[in-house]
């Protein structure tokens, strides 16, 4: 492992993970720039979600390195990775359905994160204002005190994005953020992503090519745990290899 420092926000090098001999991610190299929106596409089982799992510490790598702002993540605990500035949204929207939208956001606010800190946590004006601000951004201002269980599928997706935004991560990873959304919701989400990538890098996994075209700075195509190709959307879309394995004829 050559841990040379880079200017990239995220530098994934020679990353491999094998499950009982099956290499879900195979010798992967991936570099994400400051303020970039990177979209990862690829057929089912290409290893897209596994890559995110590896970055956020949910799955441990077999070999290789993941450096975030030149800090090695592969040995850190999940909560330390979050604290260092990496946020991750899951494929199925996971929000706290028994709590209100406000409470969902408040729990995600990075304060009082240990046992006694949370026991004696006091709500103050800064936190309330921050939650309201984020709620407005994710178009849930009017639902702030509703139970999150009552939100539509798309709204839950937004809420989860909001829960990440309130942590102000430098790297945001979104696993299929527009799944189950209507066309208008997709546009809103694209706008939202544009706005939030102004001061952070974003990695998105997505299938909807129209949405990908709308947001991506650069597209990485994964196939069988390896990078098939990488580049701007138009180049990638017309790459015969990509058409062959993913986009279809």
């Amino acid at each position: 492992m050559n841990a040379s420092n880079t200017d990239f926000v995220l530098a994934v090098e020679n990353l491999t993970v094998s499950f009982d001999g099956f290499k879900a991610v195979d010798d992967l190299n991936l570099y994400v720039d400051e303020g970039e929106i990177r979209v990862i596409i690829g057929p089912n089982g290409a290893g897209k979600t596994t890559v995110l799992d590896l970055i956020c510490g949910r799955t441990r790598s077999t070999q290789g390195s993941i450096r975030f702002r030149n800090r090695e993540l592969t040995k850190m605990t999940e909560s330390d990775i979050v604290k260092s500035g990496v946020g991750r949204k899951f494929q199925t929207p996971s929000v706290y359905t028994e709590l209100t939208v406000y409470e969902n956001l408040e729990i995600s606010y990075p304060k009082g994160r240990n046992v006694f800190g949370s026991l004696f946590f006091r709500r103050d004006e800064t936190i309330v204002r921050k939650c309201e601000e984020v709620a407005e951004m994710i178009l849930l201002k009017d639902q702030l005190y509703d139970s999150a269980g009552l939100l539509s599928h798309g709204q839950k997706q937004w809420l989860e994005i909001g829960m990440l935004l309130i942590q102000d991560p430098e790297l945001l990873m979104l696993d299929e953020p527009v799944a189950g959304m209507s066309v208008t919701e997709r546009h809103e989400t694209a706008k939202l992503l544009r706005r939030i990538s102004e001061n952070r890098s974003v990695i998105v996994i997505e299938h909807d090519m129209q949405f990908v075209a709308e947001i991506a700075d650069k597209v990485t195509v994964l196939h069988q745990g390896k990078i098939l190709t990488e580049g701007p959307i138009d180049t990638v879309k017309n790459d015969p290899k990509v058409v062959e394995v993913y986009l279809g004829h």
């Binding site: 899951f90 929000v95 706290y96 729990i107 994160r113 942590q167």
Partner: peptide
Amino acid sequence: RILVAMRGAEDRVRFSG
């Protein structure tokens, strides 16, 4: 509230730090 959140979506709590 964290306990209630954990009961429903433990991973979300874990990956919220």
